[in-house]
């Protein structure tokens, strides 16, 4: 029986709080399935501690949090290996506890202690934790919590670099097509962050894994799922047409198989997809150094392509003028290529 009720309530120090959190998380292990009540109790304890941690990190809405306490707490969490516990226990925590943990995670991760972020360093030394979080997308109950934690991590270039090279990156090609729209949406946001937030990491990755990456990506572009097609196409233009990836783009636009996909998307039943496809297709055509195979395809299909392009319009407004102007250029170029004498095979 505890007599804490009679004790003057002194708030816990960061060290005491971290110890309490650690003990309560470890206690989850010692309970077996048979002891349902004991496990419930242990989860309650974790939940309570996480609420205290959240208050210490972000204040209670009235009082501002104490900066020294935040630093101490963050340091202690790393020193005591509590981060690994947090991540490994995430799947068994309750709804509120998970939400509070995600909230605390974003604060701790960007917390500078001295000249460095100790939580980031911790993650860099325990990279397998990232793989653990990625795999959690398969568990629909915790997928969105893990997604939030991952996107916080992927603000840091070194962590992006790791996951791009890790086998778990390939899982994203599956997750973005999960039937559950919320989970698929979240996975796509993370996937997009990975490919757009850190240009040089992405550029290195695409250079090293060009073939396997685009083989996977082709499946997204040709997916039967409308959302997958539309957003993967848009994302493609967002990273492929970025200056740091221009060498990737030059490689991409001389390959016939990619041109074929864009031509297919150009006649998709969705207008949004047609327009997005045009913005990549135009690069194939406008390329002054088109290889012969590309010219042959354009010449062979020029009638259908011209018909498609003539019917394509974005609607109204200033963007329309630019679009029409580019369309005219592309049409002229296709006409020119189709008249080239030496393409007949």
């Amino acid at each position: 029986m505890s007599f804490s009720f009679f004790k003057p309530s002194r708030p816990k120090t960061p060290q005491e709080l971290v110890k309490a959190i650690k003990d309560s998380l470890i206690a989850l292990d010692t309970k077996t399935v048979a002891e349902v009540k004991a496990l419930e109790k242990a989860l309650e304890e974790v939940e309570k501690n996480l609420v205290t941690m959240k208050l210490m990190l972000s204040g209670d809405g009235e009082a501002e949090p104490n900066v020294d306490q935040i630093s101490q707490l963050t340091l202690e969490i790393c020193k005591e290996d509590v981060i690994a516990l947090f991540i490994h226990k995430l799947p068994i925590l309750g709804w509120e506890a998970r939400k509070n943990l995600v909230h605390c995670w974003s604060i701790m991760l960007r917390q500078m202690v001295g000249s460095s972020c100790c939580c980031v360093q911790y993650m860099e030394n325990h990279l397998e934790l990232l793989d653990f979080l990625v795999v959690c997308y398969d568990n629909k109950d915790i997928a969105l919590n893990c997604g939030n934690m991952l996107r916080e991590c992927f603000k840091i270039p070194s962590l992006v670099k790791y996951i791009l090279e890790s086998p778990s990156f390939l899982l994203f090609f599956k997750f973005v097509e999960l039937p559950n729209f919320d989970v698929a949406s979240d996975a796509f946001s993370t996937f997009k962050d990975l490919l757009t937030k850190h240009a040089s990491a992405v550029s290195d990755f695409l250079t090293a894994h060009y073939n396997e990456f685009f083989e996977q990506y082709e499946k997204l572009l040709t997916s039967a799922n409308y959302v997958t097609r539309r957003q993967s196409l848009k994302l493609l233009s967002e990273f492929l047409l970025e200056p740091p990836n221009s060498h990737i783009m030059r490689r991409y636009i001389v390959e016939v198989r990619h041109l074929r996909i864009m031509m297919t998307l150009l006649k998709d039943s969705s207008k949004n997809i047609q327009i997005s496809a045009f913005h990549i297709f135009k690069v194939f055509v406008a390329n002054p150094n088109k290889p012969r195979e590309i010219k042959v395809i354009l010449a062979k299909n020029h009638e259908r392509l011209l018909a498609l392009l003539h019917n394509l319009s974005v609607g109204k407004g200033a963007e329309d003028d630019q679009f029409e102007e580019e369309k005219e250029l592309i049409i002229k170029e296709i006409e020119r290529v189709s008249r080239l004498p030496n393409l007949e095979s």
Binding site: K99, G147, D182, S185, D186, S189, R230, Q231, K271
Partner: peptide, 22 residues
């Protein structure tokens, strides 16, 4: 979604936000 004026990014954000509220 093809007729909706909304950007797919917004649709995704909305779906995620909804799911984390109770």
């Amino acid at each position: 979604l093809d007729q909706s004026r909304a950007d797919l990014d917004n649709v995704r954000r909305e779906a995620k936000t909804m799911s984390l509220l109770s």
